[in-house]
Write a protein that binds this DNA or RNA. Structure first.
Lengths: 183, 183
DNA sequence: GAGCTATGTCATTTCCGGTTGACATGGGGC
DNA sequence: GCCCCATGTCAACCGGAAATGACATAGCTC
């Protein structure tokens, strides 16, 4: 029998759930599989999270953490971010993984509203505050869209750019990002 | 009883399937609903496509066709596209269905490789050709990223922008897109 | 128009996955 | 050491959705 440690068990379930939801989406992730990966009986998921919905909500909450936009320097962030986007996909796995989770969740009609609410609160909010200026709403949305798109591109591409193409990619990306934080 | 025309029936099923798969993903789309929309009994889907898997494969194959970038006007496409992105997700369904379908399919581990290969060939290829100029690779990637990001944002948001915010959104988005096709 | 086959419809079955409740047991509190 | 509750396990249930097979009939061939 599994060692009796509710906290560790819940953590194991949550970790497995994040992987499965990220890989397969809400409908495609099965509680039995998640439980198996966590080394737990599926019934425990119900006990601890109140069902699949609750588990998803917990995983979602755990995946979206406030991004530290406040400590980015307004003058240099664009280039820094562009460099990050130009990097290898296997770097920054935590962030990448969380984003996969969000992307898949966003493409399921069941979970899309949840994701939207969470993203609004913990992602768009900080972005708006950070960007500031007039017409924040429109500019923040474009910023978020570009940000998401760059992450997706980074996620699905075969190989990163090299040499001159890479240099141009960073310059151009930085220019786009920079333009969006300017009024 | 439905008119006896196997070819038309299959086409109706395929059309309905594409809509449902685009809107709800593989697991979220139900054969009964697809059949109902097509004005067909669900059993026919099995007869003609051999089951849900077969139907999905057929819809995927049918959705991946070369995108007509060549008939966009280089001077006006940016504003047109920005207006489209500013709209509600359920408007302009014709144009965006294929993309939504592909995006959802790309987030399913089963179909992802197929989709990625097809996207490279039939999406990135045309984009490169259409954009042209020096450092096409880098610019095409950013363009694709922005394009995808806007689609995702459009997909997950609750409500479109209105009034002045909408106007700014379109202007800014158009500016970003336009800048990316210029060398 | 008789007969046959492809097409369409319906009822039923099967399967799958989330949920539930009963039961087992480890381990802390007394 | 005993009791009790929290934790873990197991088997069964239930609803929903896909698949199946029997049946009906339109429409073509002759």
């Amino acid at each position: 029998m599994r060692k009796r440690d509710a906290e560790a068990t819940q953590a194991a379930i949550l970790a497995a759930a994040k992987i499965h939801f990220a890989r397969s989406g809400y409908e495609g992730a099965f509680l039995r599989d998640i439980a198996a990966d966590a080394g737990v009986d599926a019934a425990l998921i119900n006990r601890y999270f109140g069902g699949k919905d609750g588990l998803f909500a917990a995983a979602l909450k755990h995946s979206i953490r406030p991004h530290a936009f406040h400590d980015w320097q307004r003058e240099t962030f664009a280039v820094e971010m562009a460099k990050m986007m130009a990097g290898h996909a296997h770097q920054d796995m935590d962030r990448t993984h969380a984003f996969q989770f969000l992307l898949r969740a966003a493409t399921s009609p069941v979970t899309a509203p949840l994701v939207n609410a969470a993203v609004q609160e913990r992602f768009m909010g900080p972005i708006r505050a950070w960007i500031g200026g007039p017409n924040v709403e429109a500019r923040a949305r474009i910023f978020a869209a570009v940000f998401i798109g760059l992450l997706v591109e980074r996620l699905i591409r075969d190989e990163p750019l090299e040499g001159r193409e890479r240099k141009v990619f960073i310059e151009r990306t930085a220019a786009v990002l920079q333009s969006l934080v300017e009024a």
